[in-house]
Design a protein around this nucleic acid. Structure first.
Lengths: 239, 239
DNA sequence: TGAACTTACTGAACGCCGTGTAGTAACTGT
DNA sequence: ACAGTTACTACACGGCGTTCAGTAAGTTCA
């Protein structure tokens, strides 16, 4: 969308970008310290020695800021799980899936407010934009899974039925899948989402404190579930 | 805990109980209409022709009211899924599990605010009490699952490993399991939680709008996942 | 019946919140 | 030096949960 040849940023622009960053940084810090409820324009401004109104010069509305935060946090999550996945050899599909899953849980427990921000309704009255941050998040999450699913597909016999059509999935997801893995049928998209959902379930319950009162070792539960899943994909769990 | 022989309620007590119920009813209605954010003491009071302060005569604090709501809503959910499960013949374990799962999703989509209330952080700043409503919910959910898991256990060979101990689970869960199904090993408790988590994942993603942008038929995805799960439990999916 | 007590509720206040808007002071380019 | 832009403040509005003094009923007992 940028038509101009990107002139070097003026002093004004630099200061502006810096303040924008600072607002988000402070917001994330407040959130990490006091939970997502601690994100209030007034608290952020207070922390920065400003007035709440000043923030409106940088973000149209509180929800715009929250959306930006979601994108930042989501980027962090995606980077983390993909880095973990890529620490396994490209051929070790079982290991890569397990690494991905383990990293997902680890990140979520390390950043529960982030998890709530992305996957819950952490912020009072926040309405995601049309299409929205949640949509972005989902698209990216699914795209990230695609590689894993593609690698597992040949052995994932169990999932080759299901009678799915490309029309069952969003245009964007279809495009990404076609581009990166043209050999995959629509059922592979379904598999990706199911894998995602399966991991999400136990993590969400744990982050929201629903498994805590029931078991003293939710980690083992999760790892076993992960192992089961890998096995059901026709792969042999490593270690 | 009631020591007195429960004298018939006085007029005062009846009115009081009625008002308490009305507060909760109005709160649930507001929530159904305007999402969980619509639950505010002021809005409830307004709706009832009262002042916000008056509600403090019935609930110590807003969170106390929310906790009561969670318990009510959770009771409704549990009743619904158990009723669906019991509409299948006691011998039809596969059918009962599928009915349970299908009813879970149906209820969640019909009452998204309720789902958020129980499993998310629907209400701004709500802090569950120690032990808490979430704990209650989890205990009851798991107890409800126990029957299904018990029925599936003989065929669920895949899950008979895992090396769990009773010490891995909460005392209360162990008691319930021992009482109702003394033949089950600790690994069965783990299986119950895993089944729960697996269903929760896709439903949570859907309720929070993460699957919507990706697929046009999340229901099929869910039903397939349910069927897979039943199969992996060593059962034959019905229909 | 009438006094003493208890309950249910109001109304105003406190400090929090997001959001607008008018005004000011500082930077920026000519 | 001057005009224009930008960054910000100050204040106001209505919302929120919560507290508290006060009032008007309902209830109990002499």
């Amino acid at each position: 969308m940028e038509t101009a040849p990107a002139a070097p940023p003026t002093r004004r622009e630099r200061l502006r970008a810096e303040t924008t960053r600072e607002i988000k940084t402070v917001a994330l810090r407040l959130m990490a310290e006091g939970g997502p409820d601690a994100i209030s324009l007034r608290a952020i401004a207070r922390e920065m020695g400003m007035t709440a109104g000043a923030i409106y010069g940088y973000f149209d509305t509180r929800d715009t800021l929250v959306t930006a935060l979601i994108q930042d946090v989501y980027g962090d999550l995606v980077d983390t799980v993909e880095a973990a996945r890529d620490r396994c050899a490209p051929g070790d599909t079982a290991g890569r899936i397990a690494a991905w899953g383990t990293a997902l849980r680890a990140w979520s427990l390390a950043h529960p407010e982030g998890f709530r921000l992305i996957y819950g309704d952490a912020v009072h009255g926040y309405q995601p934009p049309e299409g929205g941050a949640a949509a972005d998040a989902a698209e990216r999450a699914c795209a990230g899974l695609t590689g894993l699913v593609a690698a597992a597909w040949p052995t994932a016999k169990e999932f080759h039925d299901g009678d799915y059509t490309w029309a069952d999935f969003s245009d964007h997801l279809c495009e990404v899948l076609h581009r990166d893995h043209p050999e995959l049928p629509p059922a592979a998209a379904a598999l990706g989402m199911r894998v995602w959902g399966r991991m999400h379930g136990l993590v969400a319950l744990e982050v929201y404190g629903h498994t805590g009162p029931l078991t003293r070792d939710p980690g083992r539960l999760y790892e076993d579930e992960l192992k089961s899943m890998v096995r059901e994909l026709g792969l042999t769990p490593t270690a």
